[in-house]
Amino acid sequence: MTAFRNTIVELTLIEICLLGVLVFCFVVQLYFTLFVHQKLASVSIEEPLPNGIRPLSVVICARNEAENLKTFLPAIMDQNYPDFEVIVVNDRSWDGTRIVLEEFAEKYEKLKVVTVADGGKFIAGKKFAVTMGIKAAKNDWLVFTDADCYPASPNWLLGMQQPPEDHKEILLGYSPYTRKRGLLNALIRFETFFTAVNYLSFALKGMPYMGVGRNMAYKKSLFFRNKGFAAHMHIPSGDDDLFVNAHATARNTAIRIHPDTQVWSLPKTSFAAYLRQKKRHFGAGKMYKGKHRFILTAQALIQFLFYMMLIAACFFKTLWYPAAGVFGLSILIRCFVYPKLLRRLNYPGLAWWFPVLDILLFIFLIFNGILSIFVKKAQWK
């Protein structure tokens, strides 16, 4: 009995508070893992429809994308779909994009080129170009991608076509980044993976809040019925996620993650370019609906507090073992969910690096959030 009493450790009020906050963050973290993200890990993957039911229009905005168009546009033009057109908006390019598009237009009857002339009044960036492309589309169903993207298969459009249910007006697709050597590329792909897991999982739960313009679709009638980008035309970014955030509902939105319906994209190759890209996304997020901002802020705050409490626990010898136990249990449980999702979303090579990349991503997001407070300027290209 005496020996047992000697092993009892009395915690101070500060230590109890630190451990309590750590456990609370762990519980909330598990909620997102097991009751939100697990839905994407367990949902059955819907096969693309075997035939094209209705005509559709692909919209691509390009600014100084001559080389990417040469490389990737043929894969879009040669899609296995019976009735579609491809609209490429040349947004004030000066690198030979016009010449490349003229050559493609002679080869492909389905290609329609829209040119945005240079001028001071076009201050809205990509949103103006997207609007011009939508206006030029002859079909109601619009599929969007970027000039530096290429579909994973010739059946991409079969998967991204309008669902048979007419009330489905928005399709959220998935666009992974190609693999390159280096830590930056691993970080970019891991961050893209978690972003996709989040928006696709919440869409499955009936609360869609964003999509990515590299691979998404919606009705032209939905766009004009809601006056396009008028509500956020003053924001340089957000032609994709802000539109979805404003108009997607549990009833009118579906997701597509089948490997054939994915669109691969070229990642940034420098840390500075990647930071500029993330600053644009950070600015658009401020315009999300209140409930979406609350949930996303809560996610980030819980992750921040979780790691801060772990660091703080290192300064209290009495908390070493319980803190290590909570951290180990967190990693163990999440390793049953996220590696499976990494393989499902075409990043199998990152599964083994999940714990390390999780910490590195946390550090990067904190750094990017602080930087975004002081750097306000953002452009679409």
Rank of each mutant, 00 (worst) to 15 (best):
I53Y: 11
P55K: 03
P55Y: 08
S57P: 02
V58A: 08
C61N: 09
A62T: 09
R63F: 08
E65Q: 14
N68V: 00
N68R: 01
L69R: 03
A75G: 09
M77E: 09
D78F: 12
D78E: 15
D78R: 15
Q79A: 15
N80H: 14
N80R: 15
Y81N: 02
D83I: 07
I87V: 13
I87K: 04
V88R: 04
R92I: 11
W94I: 12
W94V: 14
W94H: 15
D95F: 00
D95P: 02
G96Y: 07
G96C: 02
R98L: 10
R98T: 13
I99S: 15
V100T: 12
V100F: 02
L101Y: 09
E103W: 00
F104H: 00
F104T: 05
F104N: 05
A105E: 14
E106H: 04
K107P: 05
K107S: 13
Y108V: 06
E109P: 01
K110F: 04
L111M: 00
L111N: 06
K112P: 01
K112T: 13
V114T: 01
V116F: 03
V116N: 10
G119Q: 11
G120P: 15
K121C: 04
K121T: 12
I123V: 09
K126R: 15
K127Y: 07
A129M: 08
A129T: 10
T131G: 09
M132D: 10
I134C: 08
A136H: 00
A136V: 00
A137V: 10
N139Y: 14
D140G: 01
D140F: 01
W141Y: 11
V143W: 05
V143A: 14
F144P: 00
F144V: 08
A147C: 05
Y150E: 06
Y150R: 08
S153F: 01
P154L: 12
N155H: 15
W156F: 13
W156A: 07
W156E: 11
G159I: 09
Q162S: 09
P163I: 14
P163C: 11
P163L: 12
E165D: 15
E165S: 15
D166S: 10
K168G: 03
K168F: 13
K168Y: 08
E169Y: 01
E169K: 13
E169M: 03
E169R: 09
L172S: 13
G173I: 12
Y174V: 01
Y174C: 08
P176E: 07
P176C: 06
P176L: 00
Y177N: 10
Y177E: 10
T178L: 11
T178W: 02
R181T: 15
R181N: 14
R181P: 08
L187C: 05
I188K: 13
I188C: 09
F190I: 02
T192V: 07
T192P: 01
F193A: 14
A196L: 06
V197T: 10
